[in-house]
Write a protein that binds this DNA or RNA. Structure first.
Lengths: 207, 207
DNA sequence: AAGATTAAAAATGTATACATTTTTAATAAT
DNA sequence: ATTATTAAAAATGTATACATTTTTAATCTT
């Protein structure tokens, strides 16, 4: 069932599902070769997490991208991920940091799509956040990051995202290793703020 | 179906559903007199929103209260509701403020349970937040406030919650009417912070 | 006696069938 | 011609039935 949800997310992102008209349970049922019950379950989850919106009282639609929502998502991330990192900092062993560094190396690959890059970016952050041991906060942050993926499907997204993001990660690791906790929190805050501003700028200019 | 979800929430809060052991779909099905399908739907939603947690791979359980989660919930509220109020401030007409004041009067009634008080408190805040026109942010804040209700079921919750909360609301209205926006944001922040601290204190001492 | 193995029981996930609600479009009224 | 009305079609919500997975407990092994 989680497979179906992920597949729906991918197909929403890749434009394989039609935008601008309501999606019906039967239609999705025949597309994915399962009955309406698991489709209903998946739709309910995706509605809860902002991937689909109700269309009147029957059917759902793929929501339009809009810069206000992107701004909200990034600002929420900024506020909440700082809290999460703060809890995580005392528990960030060299081993955990090592795992995050490995992911950051993968981000180096030049052939990644923006979606793949977004996924790796979250994997990196999640690696750090997990040791915060704050499941409720983590869960909200995870959903926000998932939602942000909806905004990362462009062929030509915000420029230079790759280079800046990656070196900021390295800076972050460095600050954490040197126990400069206050500064690492500020860096994270700025890291997300800048990414959000670029995204919002891009959306405003392309709407 | 939303009726069933609300009824389940109430029954969780009022202790009508057993804590400490897994709840089965069939059991709930016979309690509420509907088939397992709508029960499944409701369970899925309540799991998403933290009202139930998975128990292994079969069944769900009512989660224990713990102060870390309460701390997270209030800190998230603090960060996000300030953002939401900031968006709302320019649109807070006298009419909207009037509706909020009416709710604040209802909070005056001495015979309210903590749950009813919590509900009215959210109604008041939601009245202000709706005019922010930020559905994504509003939705997250709404879920957080719903979740906080789980922590408000005590017979003897944090003391003096009623008096302080109500006068703080009045202060907030006053500041907004006088266009002292910066200060109203600070007051809201402090309003939630103090409520959270009291709740956390209470939970720590009673665990 | 403690732990692993296996079979029965029970629970969940899914499919199909039915009931109810919602949508659509055709007809009637102003 | 535009708006209401109404009936047919289609969609969703729910119930029942079945398949698969998970749990439980009884048996076997060491």
């Amino acid at each position: 069932m989680v497979d179906l949800v992920d597949q729906l997310k991918d197909d929403i992102l890749n434009g394989k599902l039609p935008k601008g008209r309501p999606l019906r349970q039967q239609e999705l049922s025949s597309i994915y070769g399962v009955s309406r019950i698991p489709i209903r379950d998946a739709i309910a989850l995706l509605k809860n997490q902002g991937w689909l919106i109700a269309h009147g009282k029957a059917g759902v639609m793929i929501p339009e991208l809009n810069w206000q929502e992107a701004e909200d998502l990034y600002r929420m991330r900024m506020a909440l991920e700082v809290q999460l990192l703060e809890h995580a900092l005392p528990n960030l062993s060299h081993e955990v940091l090592g795992r995050a560094k490995d992911i950051n190396l993968q981000l180096n690959a030049p052939c990644l799509t923006l979606l793949e890059r977004g996924q790796l970016n979250w994997d990196l952050h999640a690696t750090l956040y997990k040791v915060a041991n704050r499941p409720t906060l983590f869960n909200v942050v995870a959903i926000l990051n998932e939602q942000v993926r909806r905004y990362m499907g462009f062929q030509d997204g915000p420029l230079n995202y790759r280079d800046t993001s990656q070196s900021e990660h390295e800076q972050l690791f460095h600050l954490i290793e040197n126990k400069q906790f206050e500064q690492s929190l500020c860096l994270l805050e700025d890291h997300i703020k800048v990414a959000g501003q670029k995204m919002v700028e891009y959306l405003k200019s392309n709407q």
